[in-house]
Design a protein around this nucleic acid. Structure first.
Lengths: 219, 219, 219, 219
DNA sequence: GATGAATGAGGGTTCATTCAT
DNA sequence: AATGAATGAACCCTCATTCAT
């Protein structure tokens, strides 16, 4: 059950890519952090780029798997399905938050790799969400409205905490990987769904335990 | 009135950093794209890093200037102020969309520079928005509610189109730099403000000219 | 038993530093003279500076080792010890005359490295000679006299032929690395010791086989 | 009577060459230390090398001038002439100790320049000393003996304090530029001349005011 | 599976100098 | 006399990868 050198490389790589990006990380950095010979990266992954792509693809495939599983197994209203799906995606990112940030950042690049991954994975993701929302409309649960900005908005909310965890922690002292964070954030998203998608929005009960007003320095 | 070599360097750098990131761009790339000697980068900016930071800081200071100017000059309801401010920020980013993406991406890094810039610029930005929203609450325009996620949500919406323009264009054929984009997107944001912040949300009139239903491939 | 590339680098470096000094020698010079890839210098020695320091330290440690060995093993009068020690040091420098000159020149610089090496190696050397001369005085072999200039004078004589071999060869056609040179020079030093240190100086028999009078061009 | 920029360059250059050597000093270092535009070095001296050579030659010509003047004007015994000459040379070097060390170090290089300067200046210097010592022998003041090592020894003593001032100050706390140093050192040299050159050596009176025995740590 | 030596390419920066002003 | 912009060459070093062991 021991950790292989290959695993050690992956661990080290994830952490370094997460912090410094792809170009900012050298194979030597990875190897030395993994306490492993430099040549081993090329041996196991066919080079730095191969390692990187493997990490990206692993993450994105897990992502798609989550979506697929959710859509197949969850019953109930479309809204329930949607909420369950979002929560799963948040948990997935939280469990892999190093890779998550790495992927989200890389996706802002203009590389051949990104273009390929977008065509392959994000297009699928987009399609699944489209179908889901569309179902909600057909069943009368959701208000009819243009889909594009809704989908984009939804995705942005799902991704944001793991794309800019640094911003949240630095300016709001919010740790996005703590288990309680997801619950709090889910309330926020639920509120958005009620307001934006649903026909008869429930009243949103404010969680008064959190910051309600401005810090003293402002008032 | 001619374009100096220093300007040419800036132009080239912005485009390359935008596409490939900081570590993915070499000074030789920049110099050759600017049709300029390599040494000139060090001469004018004290090195690649200096050039990069200068671009970041210029952008962020312009950003803050916009906010300050808006808050001082715009009259009317708080909602009007907020909408005007957001529109200005979108226009500013659109006018500098290369640098914008560059900055937004860099802000997801864990570097000393980022930490400094966050403390300096983003903290101020956060504070100004806090005051604005708080005013809206005091005057009874906005519903009272916890501020943190509202602020984060707001900022995410403002930044998103320029942080991931690639995603929008690739999957939705939306060009974020076209003038008409801002108007469309402003409607979206206005809707969010009405639903989320205001007490008596106006009815949101769907712009039926845009995609209403799913693409044919789905139905 | 073959010569490794590392050795080849050392050989080339020694010769080049000797001729052109540290700053006057480039790693490319070294690598190409050693018929070796440039990167290998950094690989084996951690860079040009590392290589340089390794050479310096190796030489100085050998130097100290000579002194220690001599002082431990040589019997007889103090004068005998002194003469034997000096001869060994001359031979050591002669055997490593490239590095010797390199080191002696570097020691005239005002660098952090030099300050460290002086504190470490030359202080020890000075101390050993002090003890030796002091012993000679206690035993009545040497005349009592202030030590400072004596030590400096002695050291200068030992070092001079290898610090300025060029001067000797250019103006006096004296090759400091020929074996016969050391014997000739030892007579000179022996004379100085007799005159300066010893109580009853022996008569100094001039070696009439060497230049006695001025060259014809003068007379 | 104001200091011209040209002078400022010379001052700065002397100090920097003295500390870091020729290759270790950049034109920018010099210009910035002199508070002067970089291009001015090329303008006034035709480049870095030109400046360097001018400094070397100025010093060596002053050196030769001293010798010439001394030999023409000083009367008395040959020994008196020699002592007066040596003292003048020490004072000259002391007055120009920055350049002195710079020149002495450069003279250990194997460059075309050095070869030329040796042929031109040091050969003359050697010749003048030869004549002087030879005169002393003819007049019966000095013992007849081979000249080569005597001349080399003499020159080494004259140069040493300014070639390795750092060694003296670091290990013996001797400041070679203090006025009193020359007087002390002259006694030492006088002693050597008495012992080595003269026929009836006077008794050497030890200056008991200086370190006589070993430091406590040794005894 | 794992390693240390070795490499060619390219990294960013500094160099001394030139030139128009 | 003096300058700031500009340059081509060279600087040292690190890069990802290969290969014999």
């Amino acid at each position: 059950m021991k950790e292989t050198k290959k695993d050690r490389i992956i661990d080290a790589a994830v952490r370094l890519f997460y912090t410094q990006g792809f170009d900012g990380t050298s194979v030597r950095d990875i190897a030395s952090k993994a306490n492993v010979n430099v040549a081993l990266v090329s041996y196991h992954f066919g080079g730095k780029k191969g390692l990187y792509e493997e990490l990206m693809i692993q993450f994105l495939e897990g992502h798609l798997t989550i979506i697929k599983t959710e859509l197949e197994h969850v019953k109930g209203t479309v809204k329930d399905q949607l909420l369950s799906l979002i929560k799963s995606l948040l948990q997935y990112q939280s469990a892999n938050h190093f890779v998550a940030r790495m992927v989200h950042r890389e996706m802002t690049m203009d590389s051949v790799l990104v273009r390929e991954l977008m065509s392959t994975y994000l297009r699928k993701e987009k399609h699944d969400f489209e179908v889901l929302i569309h179902n909600g409309m057909k069943k009368g649960e959701f208000r009819k409205q243009p889909l594009d900005f809704v989908l984009i908005h939804l995705r942005t909310m799902i991704i944001m905490p793991f794309q800019s965890p640094h911003y949240l922690s630095e300016l709001y002292q919010i740790t996005t990987t703590e288990p309680y964070f997801i619950e709090r954030y889910m309330k926020h998203i639920k509120h958005w769904i009620d307001l934006w998608l649903c026909k008869n929005p429930q009243e949103y009960s404010h969680n008064t335990s959190t910051t309600f007003l401005l810090p003293r320095s402002i008032s």
